[in-house]
């Protein structure tokens, strides 16, 4: 399948992505569309640039990691987060579009949670940023609900057979984030150091939080 790297799928003749007169068809098409919508006064070009900058540089999984680290060190915060996630996340100054109705689900030795959107690409933007390509591509959307253990194995996560798996299909405007288990050996770590162990995949449920000193992962 042609989904893996997010390029327009029926790949274009010519193959290169030069600018100027030799634009690939999709690039020329998008450029024409943008010029038109700006000329018509429907969009503000400065807002388009700011949107891209916001989601490339400001909003991302480092924000969700702060929420997780806080929940690990502060039991009262953890309770508020699990009871009503949106206001608890807002306590850290985090929230907004795509996270208006947050639900946080907690991993335990008994239950491992995993989040998917089988129908499109619903994802908790304010805490995780925009989703990776694999999250939006058919393989994950098809398999997460029928073969979550197989998917987890591909991500290098082997769970005991006794661990129950709960898959959350994001079929409405409720958005899910996983609160991963706190790794062993992290008792003395600061909240900031703990946050650095929380990967994007751990908050989707396709990964676990890193052990201290471990290799960094998405």
């Amino acid at each position: 399948m042609a989904h893996d790297h997010g390029h327009s799928a029926p790949h274009h003749h010519g193959g290169d992505h030069d600018h100027g007169s030799d634009l690939a068809p999709v690039e020329a098409r998008v450029r024409a569309l943008e010029s038109l919508l700006v000329e018509k006064g429907y969009v503000d070009p400065a807002a388009l640039d700011a949107l891209v900058e916001m989601y490339e540089t400001k909003v991302g999984p480092h924000l969700g990691a702060r929420v997780v680290a806080r929940a690990w060190v502060d039991p009262a915060y953890r309770e508020r987060l699990l009871a009503d996630a949106t206001p608890a996340i807002a306590e850290l100054g985090i929230g907004g579009r795509g996270g208006e109705h947050m639900v946080v689900v907690e991993n335990t030795p008994e239950t491992h949670n995993m989040v998917v959107c089988t129908l499109c690409s619903c994802y908790p933007w304010p805490v995780l940023g925009l989703p990776p390509v694999w999250y939006k591509a058919p393989a994950y959307r098809a398999r997460a609900v029928i073969d979550p253990r197989g998917v987890l194995e591909e991500f290098g996560v082997a769970l005991p057979a006794t661990t129950r798996i709960a898959v959350w299909d994001s079929t409405a405007e409720t958005r899910f984030m996983v609160l991963p288990m706190r790794p062993a050996g992290t008792e003395g770590l600061t909240e900031e150091a703990l946050a650095s162990l929380v990967t994007r995949d751990a908050m989707i449920g396709t990964g676990l939080a890193l052990a201290p000193g471990g290799k960094s992962k998405p």
Binding site: G6, H7, H17, V43, L51, V52, P218
Partner: peptide, 28 residues
């Protein structure tokens, strides 16, 4: 559909036009 294929160090967008489509969809 085959295996799930995560990409190492995946960028938020993979091409300029993806950035513009995202922003145009939001703004429209």
């Amino acid at each position: 559909f085959g295996p799930v294929l995560p990409e190492e160090n995946e960028p938020v967008f993979h091409a300029e036009w993806e950035k513009r489509v995202f922003a145009l969809a939001m703004a429209m």
